[in-house]
Amino acid sequence: MKKFSLVSSLLCTALVFGCGDDGKPGATGATNPTTMDTNQTGDETEGDTSSGNATESPTSTSPGTNPTMPSTDPTGDATTGDTTEGSFITPPDGGGGTKECDPWTQDCPAGEKCMPYSGDGDFSWESLKCTPVMENPGQTGDPCTVEGNGVSGIDSCDVGHMCWNTDPETGEGSCIRFCSGSPDAPTCDVPNTTCTIVNEGVLILCLPSCDPLIQNCEGGDLCIPNDTGDFICVLDASGEEGQEFDPCEYANACDPGLYCFNSPYAVECSPDSAGCCLPFCDLSAANTCNGANAECIALYEEGTAPPGYENVGFCGIPQ
């Protein structure tokens, strides 16, 4: 997949399904690590990414939507972990799950579909398996239900779909389409969506496009960057945390309008935290950053921003 050049280089991204205080999946806590490391030189390093449905992000990295955060240097160079093109999300332990089938080709037996799920007991998608296709399965946008929880891999959607943004109490959500094509040439058949490949290729989702400066996602979802530099709507797994300067580990672990960046970009952030929630800002507006010595820093190198995102920046201390 084509890489994008950010002033803050994306090291990895991972999505998780929120985990409540009772340990059950929900929207009250973040389980996906991802943070953004910004590189003022514009150089990119590659890193592994993995994890799943309730948008999970790992430790601090550059803009993205599903990562496990590797240790990063304030200059944007990664000190640990490799990064791989097309990989959006990485599990907290950096490991890979069991992949029994291919979500691109849907090579399961008749009556089954290839689905992402959590095979290690946490709330992020790191594995793939064949699961039954229910009777009268749901299509794109249809209401759906999951069996067990949002990362079980068993739901009422058709082949090439999964039940997304499920309610932790009722298990109800809506069917979302998988990407079409191949990992090297992904496409989305659904209008106004962008193919997002994360969690080491376990999640291949056509997610709605959005504007990070107005956070125009539906249902309280977050508008954060994916691995191509576009912005997409993902589940808010921040729970009661995720305010400005709060520690974070996953891309979707901050409140709307914020993202998990490397801690050195704000003196208010704990130096012991891999990532820190910092706000997006408008480069064309007056500086409204709250942090000490913080400025609105361009998210993309000059001339490399996707159309419509030329004014997107983030609040931080220039490195």
Rank of each mutant, 00 (worst) to 15 (best):
C206A: 07
M1Q: 11
S5W: 08
N199I: 00
S8H: 06
K24D: 11
S50E: 05
D21F: 10
L128P: 13
N311Y: 01
L258K: 09
N165L: 13
P306S: 02
L203K: 01
E172A: 13
P247G: 08
C144E: 08
T228Y: 11
G150K: 04
P137I: 03
A14S: 13
Y259W: 09
S62W: 02
Q139V: 08
E310V: 01
N149I: 01
T83R: 13
P307N: 07
P33T: 09
D122A: 07
T72Y: 03
T90R: 13
D255M: 05
D48G: 07
S87N: 14
S273R: 06
P183Y: 12
T31K: 04
S273C: 04
T13M: 06
G313V: 04
G95S: 15
D122T: 12
G97P: 12
Q40P: 15
S238E: 06
G18A: 12
D221P: 00
L299N: 03
T80N: 13
N66V: 04
C277N: 03
P256Q: 10
N136A: 13
I214E: 12
Y300I: 00
I89C: 11
E169L: 07
T105A: 12
A298R: 14
D82K: 12
G119Q: 01
A14C: 09
P63K: 00
G181A: 14
Y300N: 04
I176N: 01
W125R: 00
G160Q: 13
I297W: 01
G160K: 15
P137V: 03
S152T: 09
S209C: 01
E302M: 02
T105D: 08
A237F: 01
Q215R: 07
G47L: 11
F17W: 09
V146I: 14
K99I: 04
T140W: 12
G173A: 06
P306Y: 02
V7K: 11
E310Q: 10
E172N: 12
I154A: 11
L11R: 11
G119F: 00
G26K: 04
G173I: 07
I204H: 05
C157F: 04
D142Y: 15
F4C: 05
P70V: 08
G201I: 02
C179S: 15
N149P: 03
T140C: 03
L15F: 07
E310H: 02
P247T: 08
D211T: 00
L15Y: 05
C130G: 04
S9Y: 08
T49S: 10
D184Q: 13
L235N: 10
P74Q: 10
G153C: 06
L6W: 09
G94E: 08
E112P: 00
K3F: 10
D142P: 10
E172V: 07
T288E: 13
G303S: 02
G111C: 02
T75V: 04
C19I: 14
G141W: 13
P143Q: 12
C175F: 08
